[in-house]
């Protein structure tokens, strides 16, 4: 644990002049264009946007799975050149290794680093204890509930003491009640670790509740439409979600996203013979209908 805290001041993510396109039979498709974002050391930043806007693409580029077409991604000034244990990642599909027990999953990153067995066993137990999962260390992931699986996923990503934590809609597959609990757990963990987090979600409440800052992306090709600071006090509690401050932030973000969602759906609306409505997009009439 102390290792992770010691690394806290690190983890400055910088994405500059970023664009990413891929080839298709109809020619190059622009997924993300002209994007600048940054995450300060120890900051919790979310990216929200309509589905298909390229927010996951952006996150995958920070993780090192995708190469930017132009621009670059750096962490603490070093260019990202492929995946590494310095950038821990949590996936929506949990992605636990089904053939490893809960503890073996958590140990995996430490094993890759060459930590001796007894030492990594102890480290994994400590981490699982913090997540309230010590009783399940010998279980295989299949036996766990979605919320428990994702807690293991987060612990596994944190075990190697990464500089930054990247989360790709980690609670997207969970039911509403579990989701709320997981958000609270995540914000509590972050409060203790103060690790830099880049969090992708389409859930506006989730983004506001967890973040210091929220980037809102445009419809495809994605770029940053707005950057909204979240001045809510810390530590965060679920009860804050009823405060007028929270609701005002929510209303602002909601209308930004709605504009983009309608833009993203524009083609579909035309296909449905709704051109007449589509023309009125610039006013708010359709937005209100939808």
């Amino acid at each position: 644990m102390s290792e992770i805290i010691a690394k806290a001041p690190q983890g400055h993510i910088e994405v500059r002049n970023f664009s990413l396109s891929y080839d298709s039979i109809e020619g190059p498709v622009q997924a993300v264009t002209d994007t600048q974002i940054h995450v300060q050391p120890g900051e919790f930043v979310s990216i929200v946007g309509p589905s298909g806007c390229g927010k996951s693409t952006l996150l995958n580029a920070v993780a090192g799975f995708l190469k930017p077409t132009t621009g670059m991604v750096t962490v603490d000034g070093e260019k990202v050149n492929g995946p590494s244990a310095e950038r821990g990642m949590v996936f929506q599909q949990y992605s636990l290794f089904p053939w490893k027990t809960v503890r073996e999953n958590v140990e995996f990153g430490l094993k890759m680093r060459g930590m001796p067995r007894s030492q990594r066993e102890r480290a994994a137990r400590t981490l699982l204890g913090l997540a309230g999962l010590e009783a399940f260390e010998k279980h295989y992931p299949e036996k766990l509930s979605g919320g428990m699986k994702q807690r293991v996923g987060i612990v596994r990503a944190l075990a190697t003491g990464p500089k930054v934590l990247l989360l790709d809609e980690p609670f997207g597959a969970l039911d509403a009640q579990t989701r709320v609990i997981m958000q609270q757990i995540l914000t509590n963990m972050w409060q203790r670790l103060k690790i830099s987090v880049l969090f992708v979600t389409h859930d506006i409440d989730e983004a506001i509740f967890l973040s210091d800052r929220v980037y809102c992306m445009t419809a495809r090709p994605g770029s940053i439409k707005a950057e909204i600071p979240i001045p809510l006090e810390r530590p965060r509690q679920q009860s804050m979600m009823m405060s007028s401050e929270f609701l005002a932030l929510r209303r602002g973000l909601m209308s930004l996203i709605r504009e983009e969602s309608i833009k993203a759906m524009g083609g579909e609306l035309t296909d449905m013979g709704m051109q007449g409505l589509n023309i009125e997009l610039h006013g708010h009439s359709l937005a209100d209908v939808i």
């Binding site: 993780a63 799975f65 990642m89 290794f97 995996f108 890759m112």
Partner: peptide, 9 residues
């Protein structure tokens, strides 16, 4: 990808 993010070669 999960394994790569955990430092697996």
């Amino acid at each position: 990808r999960a394994a790569q993010c955990l430092g697996a070669r």
